[in-house]
Design a protein around this nucleic acid. Structure first.
Lengths: 130, 130, 130, 130
DNA sequence: GTGGTCTAGACCACA
DNA sequence: GTGGTCTAGACCACA
């Protein structure tokens, strides 16, 4: 599935959240798909069950999955109903971060957009191939 | 100069780092410019001297500023000598983050690129206006 | 374990760094070994937790240990991948220091080498005895 | 004469002390030689006069130079009358430092001794050539 | 006046 | 239980 990077500094529970969100965004998981149980994923990633539980709890709270005790978790909703201005605020913050980093790495705007478009295509291919 | 958001969840020292990196990226600071002393910035932002010192220490360690006891700190190097493959790795990670977020917020690729280009223009204007 | 000398003029955090580097060099710690937690070492040496944390942060930054929140710290890498010329530069500086000191103390070169070899043997004995 | 490295982290006054001690150890200065006045050296190195004054004060206090107001400073004594056990203590500390560093840089004992002997020869040549 | 070191102590996130 | 962040405040070395 995916690997946890213990050296990365990013909290383990956050890595799990990010990976599951990526799986949904790239089409690996579709609405209604079952995802691994907390026990299964904890065993596979060799992390504490509480850590996986925390990740699932947050994913549930933001509406991406539903966890039913005894059954497991399923992807429940890929639609987000946040207002446009809020969306713009969230994404602009990430965009500025990206631009600042690119500036310090001395990467040209043109090249940055190229890489962005490559990743967009890669993602939509993964979805198409499914 | 800028404000610290105590509610944001982002550590104060990290906000300081991000703001100074942004100031360099947007051309507000140029190589050789003096930045506020630790004491000055701490007083202005109303945070502890140690917190500013921590931010400056990290900025120094990654080569953006030089701090000399008894003198203060200056912007010392905006050129980064990281290898191309490494640059690509760093930026692709941030790009994927951005795309995942955009997907979940149901923002079209086209719109995302538009917003990115707006921010690019805004930054280069700030530089030009200097 | 070891003692902190509050009179020595050498900063406490630096003494901690030096002692742990010595422990690794003399074979007391091997790759993968757990070292005391920040809290434990602070209690034992009777210094502030922040001071130990600073020492550990620097040891981590130069790649000798890995610290993980909630877990503790382990020795992670005794191999240094610095280029030969760089190694020579670093050590020659220390060698010149040593020779200047020996000159002013009027210690003969022959005697200095003798003492050096004694220390080398002492260290390798500690490793062998492990 | 020599350069001050403002980036090195070593205090400026300490760099001056080290350089003058080196000059004596390597035979560049002999007993009775005049060294630059505080004003001259401060001008040449482009550092604060107080900083040079501090270095000279410490050199005088440990008996290496004599400063006479209005006249300047001369090298006055290269003989140190410290007891043997004290000498050994001072040098052993520096030797252990050197060995720990060499270990972490993965430099063999044999090679380290080779480099030490090279520096010894270099120094004695400088003296002979005088 | 400047940054560096250190303390005591509070509160938080994570495993 | 572990490390991380932050504060208020003291004292020191250096320029």
């Amino acid at each position: 599935m995916f690997k946890i990077d213990m050296q990365s500094g990013k909290p383990v529970f956050q890595q799990i959240i990010d990976e599951i969100r990526l799986s949904v965004a790239s089409g690996k998981y579709l609405e209604g798909d079952k995802i691994p149980t907390i026990r299964e994923l904890a065993a596979e990633l060799r992390v504490n069950r509480n850590t996986v539980a925390k990740a699932y709890r947050e994913l549930e709270q933001c509406g991406l999955i539903t966890t039913r005790p005894g059954i497991g978790s399923i992807i429940c909703d890929t639609a987000s109903h946040i207002r446009k201005t809020e969306k713009k605020r969230i994404l602009k913050e990430k965009i500025v971060d990206l631009l600042v980093e690119a500036y310090h790495l001395q990467v040209e705007n043109k090249e940055l957009i190229e890489w962005l478009e490559q990743e967009m295509e890669k993602m939509s291919n993964e979805k198409g191939g499914k």
